[in-house]
Every structure is written in structure tokens, then in C-alpha cells.
Amino acid sequence: MKEEILTTQDLHLYYGDKEALKGINLNFDEKGITALIGPSGCGKSTYLRTLNRMNDLIPNVTITGTIKFKGDDLYAPSADTVQIRKEIGMVFQQPNPFPFSIYDNVIYGLRIAGEKDKEKLDAVVEKSLRQAAVWDEVKDHLHESALALSGGQQQRVCIARVLAVSPEIILLDEPTSALDPVSSSQIEATLLNLRHDYTIIIVTHNLQQASRIADRTAFFMNGELIEVDQTKNIFMNPANKQTEDYISGRFG
């Protein structure tokens, strides 16, 4: 039986006085891909960023409710954000490789954690880049700058960088919206390969993308979770009128 790896209960988030998330209850099973969809400003990215506490960086944010990762409260005073972010990695909308070599980008997390064994690092670089489906394209330029790569390659190197620290959950915030269609489909293929080993939560604007890759889809609107179900059901047979209107392109 699958276990719930991440649970959110009655999650509210305020930017100053403005309530951006209005009581979200949403749980994630281990492994597989969940897509978060919804119109701009619906709170899906905000929600995603509460899951590895990236919202901590923004001043004037208040969060109430409970998020539990494997039973531990992420927002407990004793919670270690650095450890949390190692276990819950994140890939951003804009590919953001560091201005170093591809090799250094991938092993950055490990190297800073103190790993020095060259053979082990080499192995991790190859494994992560293979998992991110970019190994064949970059294996001959590992020591060249990651900034010289195309946007799609950069994004896959960023995915490899996250994989290298062996997270359990990978959050992706519109990872393909800055990329061309070919690169986007490569990223999608990468994610489909990873879904058996990782819990993947992806925010996307692209409904087709959600329908192509996600096992489950959650529809957000105005800071509320309207509906969550198997992707097939959301697209073929949504329970909620608003979901149906959004899916069928009546707004958003």
C-alpha cells in the first residue's frame, strides 16, 4: 500500500493582510507525479513554495496550518530548513544553473556537505545527469560552464543538481514555461522516468502537460483547492463545475 509522504492540513498563507491560501487540505502519496493547475494568481506556486519553506525568504508572510513530511511538522520550531530542502528539492521556472562548470553544478550540494571522494562524486554526476536525461548531451563538456548550455539543457542540469542530493520529493515550479516545445517535451520525458523513484509535484500552466505526465491533478482557484483526483478524472469527468470550465478553456 502506498503511504502518504506529505500532508497539508488547513493551510492558510497571508501576504501581509492578503490571504493567498485559504485553508488547503492536500496529501501526497509516495512516488508519482502530481500536477497543480489553475489560473494565474490562484495560489498554486505559493502553495508549492510552502512545501520546502521557500516562502520563508519573503518578508511579511504568515503561514498557519500543518504541513507534515513523513509525520514531522515542517513548520515546527525545531525544523531545520536546510535539512528539509535537502529532502524536498526544487526546480524553478527560470533555469538557474550556477555560473560554474556542469560538473560543479551537479555536485554542489554534495561538495558543500563535505563529500570529497572523487570517484563517488564522478559516479553521482553521471548517475544524476543520466537520470535527468542530459548525460549524452553534456558528457564531453562536463568541465565547461553550465551557462553555455541551451535553456532546456540548463533546466535538466538543474534537475540533475537536485537529484544529486537524493531528495525524496522534487518540487517543480513551471519548469518548462521558459523553454521551447522541444526542450519542454524532453523535460517531460525526464519527469516520466523519475516518477517511479521520486514524489514529484509540478506546477504548470500547461493543461496538456498536466494531462500528459501527471498521475494526479489538483485544481486551484482563488487560493482554494477546488478539486483533486486522478488526472484522467479531472480532464474527462471533473466533479466540479469550475474545474470543468477551466479545463474546457472557458476562462484562465
Binding site: R85, F92, F98, Y108, I112
Partner: peptide, 27 residues
């Protein structure tokens, strides 16, 4: 140095100080 670099470092489980000294300063 763009904020996406800072987010990238933090999201990788680097502390604030590690992000500054190992990512931002070299860049």
C-alpha cells in the same frame, strides 16, 4: 547576481551563509 541564484542555492539545502559564500560571491 539574480535572486534565482540565491533560491537555487537555498533550494539545494545550502544554508544562507553557504549560499552567499559558495554561490553568490564566486559569481
Amino acid at each position: 547576481i539574480s535572486d534565482v541564484q540565491r533560491e537555487g542555492g537555498l533550494a539545494l539545502g545550502l544554508s544562507r551563509w553557504e549560499t552567499v559564500t559558495r554561490v553568490i560571491l564566486p559569481a
